[in-house]
Design a protein around this nucleic acid. Structure first.
Lengths: 146, 146
DNA sequence: ATCGATAATGAGAATCGTTATTATAATCCT
DNA sequence: AGGATTATAATAACGATTCTCATTATCGAT
């Protein structure tokens, strides 16, 4: 999905929720759309420029999260990294490098994704749990660090 | 694995690293061994009793993490929950409640675990990634919050 | 057992990511 | 334009975690 079509989809979604798509929020979405992985508030702050204060950035992220546009990803040292929700980027899983800390997105073929979903359902049933999302996180060493 | 055999294994492991197995650390390990899922520092503080100050608890957790006895699990609001490493508890996956934030461990039958491992291998191969651990995290609503 | 060296603890202050507050500015509606 | 509503900026507050350092416990050698 192109950055501009993401922009359009987000605008539509926010419109449905009667939430304005301001330049600050546009900047966040654009930064995330052009990103190769989840970004923290301070990383976004660096990219967007420090004219936008952190507090506004956090508020934008909260609003976008509530609207289902971005998804939080919690990491070490209390750091929360955000990425665009899967309806904008496609469903994927995460490869977390134990050496360099980078998080890589991977899409998997439909047949295997179906397998994952079945597993998720059967795991959830064991504990009377109602599944909403799932994420098969693989920790290891990325191609560069191997 | 029984609580006392966990204790013995941990003692052995710490001995190899020339780290003392003090009563404070024993208390943390015992609390985690008797738990059905990851616990945060303040939850442990509540269980162990407030005679042990939080700062000591955090230090114990850090030491135990460095020794590979305990594994951190990062969650919303900057909360880190700890659980015993899998060589002590056996391999399992996680159900994360989006409402109350509780994390529950689930073991899955061997046949399905094999499926998960195969998926992990095939996902990793896509990105020339060397898998070490994996965790199928299911987010949703727990039985209490449903 | 005792002494000295080393490691662990306790108590509190400091740090840092994040959230709340509040006053100001921008936007929408009629 | 005028009034209501919503977003922003600047800063204070908050809470989980970490740091500091003086005190205490533990280990090894004598």
């Amino acid at each position: 999905m192109t950055t501009s079509s993401v922009d359009r989809e987000v605008q539509k979604r926010l419109g449905e929720h009667a939430i304005r798509y301001t330049t600050g929020r546009r900047a966040v979405v654009a930064a995330l759309a052009g990103s190769d992985g989840p970004k923290s508030a301070s990383e976004l702050h660096g990219e967007i420029g420090s004219r936008v204060p952190l507090s506004s950035l956090y508020r934008s992220l909260t609003i976008l999260e509530e609207a289902g546009v971005v998804i939080p990803h919690y990491g070490a040292k209390g750091l929360t990294r955000y990425e665009l929700a899967e309806w904008l980027t496609g469903h994927h899983h995460h490869l977390v490098c134990l050496d360099c800390g980078a998080v890589e997105d991977v899409e998997i073929p439909g047949a295997q994704e179906t397998q994952v979903r079945d597993l998720v359902d059967s795991i959830s049933a064991i504990a009377s749990f109602t599944p909403i999302n799932h994420d098969l996180e693989v920790e290891g060493r990325c191609a560069r660090c191997a």
